[in-house]
Design a protein around this nucleic acid. Structure first.
Lengths: 226, 226
DNA sequence: GGAAAAGCAAGAGCGGTGCTCTCTTTTTCG
DNA sequence: CGAAAAAGAGAGCACCGCTCTTGCTTTTCC
């Protein structure tokens, strides 16, 4: 967080914030691919070329929205998780928080977990905030150790090595098999949310709330939470 | 399938096919939101306005690509499923087929299961071909009955009613709890594939093949396949 | 304090897009 | 054959991302 010293810097920070705010508003209305820098500028009463002083391209603006969204989701998830609660409660709360966040901001969710925006490749700086949710999942699993045994079956050596590397890199105390379970339930969680948001459950589990709660309960059991 | 009688109708069908073909080619290169009707027309050596005689809008062209893609995926999945094989083999083959299909056509996969195309809402005619994969999942489960018991826990009455309605509508002989398990593993499957394609496993389960196989094996157990 | 440097807003302009309209040509069919 | 239907081509509209130039303001530094 760099300190703001001059009035110009203050104005710049303020306007940067306003641009993102307006962009988020339009994103919610028309979606990421229809998000127009010119329209944002118009809404803010400035020339379109002026916006380029703040974001060098439309993709850079989208990147800013992505990192903000990851942070917003991370905040929501971490706020919903009470480390003192029972492991299954923690897991249910996390899942519900992800789902609520997604339902309230479908377009932002799509920005994070839908198709990568066309022609756009996620820059490295979006990686760190993007891991907060899965880290929280892993933390819940770690705090709940020893986990109940999983389905039997040996772990592929390659997978085992990957999981050991992840645990080492993140400092988590999780056996490879446990880390794999975390990744599995994590992807399952977002598979469910994505399917609900993008209409795949239309006509079957519709509304998807009951299936979601049932599925997350089952995932807690699969994960081995006591 | 309406019969083609005149030369004009034949030419129309042929050109319709060529437009879709070229559009698919460009889709693979630049993604759905960058897909340009004008560029398609240019590649085909025709005026952009002429394409509108075949597809009244860009969205209609995308819809055609979507239904084609659903059919292509459905074909691949059904071709990969040998009803005479053991249930777990059937399930593994289905999962592998979905993954292969997706990896070979990431942009088409994104069109189906990524964010809905901006400003675009899936028209009803895409619903039917979109259910082929989940129907095949359900078929495998049905053929494998009796399924091994799931994790204990009562089913929410609302969910139970939804699942019973689905089973009735599709003619599947699946208990509500079993139908719910099918939906869960189905969404899990696409959660995994989507995460791999959209880069969420980058840095952890990377490459994602081992995790994918492990996860699908576990899902087969969860589903209760013998 | 005042000049130089840096930052900023605005406008014009380029090439691209989806889509519509009009005009001409080609094909079909009574 | 001739009318009607279908198809192609081109111009044009409004919008887009992005660049460049032109003035103006603020900051910086001597």
């Amino acid at each position: 967080m760099t300190a703001i010293r001059t009035a110009r810097e203050r104005a710049r920070a303020e306007l940067t914030r306003e641009i993102k705010e307006e962009a988020r508003r339009q994103l919610a209305e028309v979606g990421s691919a229809q998000l127009s820098l010119r329209a944002v500028a118009r809404a803010l009463g400035m020339a379109s070329s002026a916006v380029y002083r703040y974001f060098p391209s439309r993709d850079e603006l989208l990147t800013a929205l992505i990192t903000d969204a990851y942070d917003s989701l991370g905040d929501a998830v971490e706020a919903a998780d009470d480390p003192a609660a029972a492991p299954r409660e923690r897991w249910s709360s996390l899942c519900a928080a992800v789902r609520s966040w997604a339902i309230e901001r479908p377009h932002e969710y799509a920005l994070l977990y839908g198709s990568p925006v066309p022609g756009y490749h996620a820059p490295p700086q979006t990686v760190a905030p993007g891991t907060r949710v899965v880290l929280r999942c892993a933390l819940i699993a770690q705090d709940a150790r020893p986990l109940r045994p999983a389905f039997p079956g040996p772990l592929d050596p390659a997978l085992s090595a990957q999981m050991a590397a992840v645990a080492a890199a993140t400092g988590l105390e999780l056996a490879p098999e446990e880390a794999a379970r975390v990744l599995i339930v994590w992807s399952q969680l977002f598979g469910l949310v994505g399917f609900e948001l993008f209409g795949q459950f239309t006509g079957s589990a519709d509304p998807a709330g009951p299936l979601f709660r049932h599925a997350t309960d089952q995932m807690a059991v699969y994960l081995g939470l006591p």
